[in-house]
């Protein structure tokens, strides 16, 4: 079952037996996922934050974050839309990105002048 993206699945505190088992399970999943990633597997699911270390896992501060089933379904819907047929001209995407970037730079300059 998909978990909420970024959902905290472990907490602090004294950590009872169940919680501790869960933390260990989360830690194992995270490490397995990272191992899969190094192998280039597409099966990666459980991940940790940057600096996802054994010590952090042991403290139970790891986060389990997933691309949810809903997001996958939406992504597949989007890919299947007519504007995403292979070979479609996407020049506008780059023009848009350039315009965004230039606008952000101009805004930054204007703020600097205002100060």
């Amino acid at each position: 079952m998909a978990r909420e993206v970024g959902a905290d699945v472990v907490g602090g505190g004294a950590g009872g037996g169940v919680d501790r088992d869960r933390r260990v399970d989360v830690a194992r999943q995270g490490l397995e996922a990272r191992s899969d990633a190094r192998e280039g597997s597409s099966a990666c699911a459980a991940v940790g934050t940057p600096g996802f270390t054994r010590r952090r896992l042991a403290r139970g501060v790891a986060r389990l974050c997933r691309v949810t089933d809903e997001l996958l379904r939406l992504a597949r819907w989007l890919e299947a839309q007519p504007w995403n047929r292979p070979g479609t001209d996407k020049t506008w995407v780059l023009r848009c990105a350039d315009a965004f970037r230039e606008f952000a730079a101009a805004r930054k300059r204007a703020r600097a002048v205002a100060r």
Binding site: V5, G6, A33, A37, S42, C44, V47, G48, T49, P50, F52, R63, C65, R66, V67, L71, L72, A75, R76, L78, E79
Partner: peptide, 18 residues
């Protein structure tokens, strides 16, 4: 593929990615 790019964001796991 979109799914793979989203998975990569998930794996990066930085707050901004999430």
């Amino acid at each position: 593929r979109l799914e793979k790019l989203l998975r990569a964001k998930e794996l990066a796991g930085r707050p901004k990615d999430l």
